[in-house]
Design a protein around this nucleic acid. Structure first.
Lengths: 190, 190, 190, 190
DNA sequence: AATGAATGAGTCTTCATTCAT
DNA sequence: GATGAATGAAGACTCATTCAT
């Protein structure tokens, strides 16, 4: 479905540049190099492209995680996880924001859970493994904890890269603090 | 500045009911009971009302925190903190969503930090006090940790109340897990 | 380009009747029998139609000149030239005024020269021919003189028909004086 | 009437900068440093300021003419007249255009004659004197000729300074040609 | 006489949506 | 399926005008 992908890619670009509200379907079709009417053959409205965009982002994040979170010790995995989410958020600043705001604007809020599911599952499994191995506290519930962790990591990344232009040094400290925070939160109680 | 407040209140109502994108300036002025042109004497666009709305929300949250986070032990304070944020988010679902999405839509992303400052400061001080009292680990840095905590609490509350309609039982568990998570993250290492 | 012409014609009518300032784009599209949005596919604003209107006027004037300035003697040609410009100005009073004022209002002042070019060229050639035939003074420079002559004829026509409601008798005298004036200005010095 | 003058001056500035159509009463009062309502104590609409503006311009031109057209020979006076009108038009490009377009837009077209009356009278008298002195042809009628002359001089000046950006050399030639043209038009027939 | 906040009718302008090709 | 000119409803925005102070 070549045209459909062209629309999604074009929408990502347009939304990133102008914001969701100010982007028009006309902007999207121009970038996608298709006719005005063609858009409607694939999507009923501009907001209905959002879930597809979010999936693209999460898929991308999953690829990155699988590529970079490779350590054998859970402690190192945690570091790699934070690094990867931070880097991805930084690289796709605009995209991250627009998914967030775009989903909330659409009637697709409920899809958030579904879209993030692969990410939650991935982390959940890792936590479960680590729990069996005794590298994290055995009292934690992997599924909830995965959600809480992703939430803290992303919210911190957003605070650093989107809302704020903290100078480099402080950003590094802030991230380090997050890692300590998570380590303690997860640590196997001795 | 009576008119200005009327506009903010009306905008909150309108945005909550119809969503930011579908709300028109005409909707806002009708609710505010002012003339069309009067809106433009105070704000240049509907999105420019967002920072003021966010401030209202944070102020409200601060009032609630000051009212309900009263325990003497830090452990209990943590419980009250999570409770209050969860309750406020639940009670103002629509408002919460629109602040997140609305701020990102506007060019006011950078103001986020400023708007949230009172909240961060408030928690930071409590953490500092707790640190001196030895009720949290002495290695934590109060300012960063405050941001990370608020981030995790809010993102969890959002997952529960906005994105997801988890049944009550699971919501309770999820929240409990968050409290454990935070407790461990902060616990004074013995 | 059928729609484009409809817009120009409608704009001429509307501007003539209500004046440029009081004409709305809505007036124009109603007359042109096209949709509101269609106007913007062809012109960005009502003033941007002015150069096209001016061209229509000059083209019309050219047709009239070619039809009525037919004498073989230059002296008679001069009479016919003045007659034609006067008659055309009188017949299209409103149009003439709006071109002068409309062009100046728009950012298209510089186009004046281009739009008038055919008229200047036409007269310039006639003057050149007359110079060769010895019916006008050989010291005149055809291109400049053409511009000066058109200027005096039009400004006099405007004084008579637009700014002033001189009674018929005086108008005739005024015009006669212009012809004498031009005759002397051009006369081959004996 | 201090406020009235402030309004006229402010209107000249505003009209010159933004054009008549795009100038708002709000622009004028801001420049005049008076309150919105005060405008209406002196003028009923923005276009009603036009006749006053035109008078200012003509008065200025009269002052200049009286200062610079001082030669005793009529031939030299003609040169000085053209020079002065050209210089004034050049110096007040924007103002000249806006009077032209502003008057035509308003219902004040008929006032043109009245406003220009001092100028026409001034030249008319000079022509009459020159006629008596035999320095111009005795067949000319001073009043009409004055109008024709002013018309040609102004239209040429406008062509040079407003519509066209002719390079300096050609502008000089064009002006020279105008002076020859007028000289011949007026010359006492020998 | 002077003010300037408020008004709201009137326009401009956009843009989702359609449909004949 | 694909096109893109045309549509016109809907909204944004302006600005002349008023009027209580």
């Amino acid at each position: 479905m070549e045209k459909r992908e062209r629309i999604i890619t074009a929408a990502i670009e347009a939304f990133s540049e102008k914001g969701v509200e100010k982007t028009t379907i006309s902007d999207i079709v121009k970038r996608a190099n298709i006719a005005q009417g063609t858009f409607y053959l694939y999507f009923p409205s501009k907001l209905s492209v959002m879930p597809d965009i979010a999936s693209v982002f999460v898929e991308h994040l999953m690829v990155e995680l699988n590529k970079h979170v490779t350590a054998s010790s859970f402690k190192q995995q945690l570091n790699q996880l934070v690094d990867t989410v931070f880097r991805t958020t930084d690289e796709h600043k605009k995209l991250a924001v627009l998914i967030y705001s775009g989903l909330t604007q659409s009637e697709h809020l409920q899809q958030w859970e579904t879209i993030y599911a692969p990410l939650y599952d991935w982390l959940s499994e890792r936590l479960e493994t680590a729990k069996q191995a005794g590298s994290v506290r055995h009292t934690l519930q992997a599924d909830y904890t995965a959600r809480i962790m992703i939430g803290s990591i992303e919210s911190t990344a957003e605070q650093l890269y989107l809302y704020n232009q903290e100078e480099h040094a402080r950003a590094k400290e802030h991230k380090q603090e997050l890692i300590h925070f998570l380590s303690h939160a997860l640590a196997a109680s001795e």
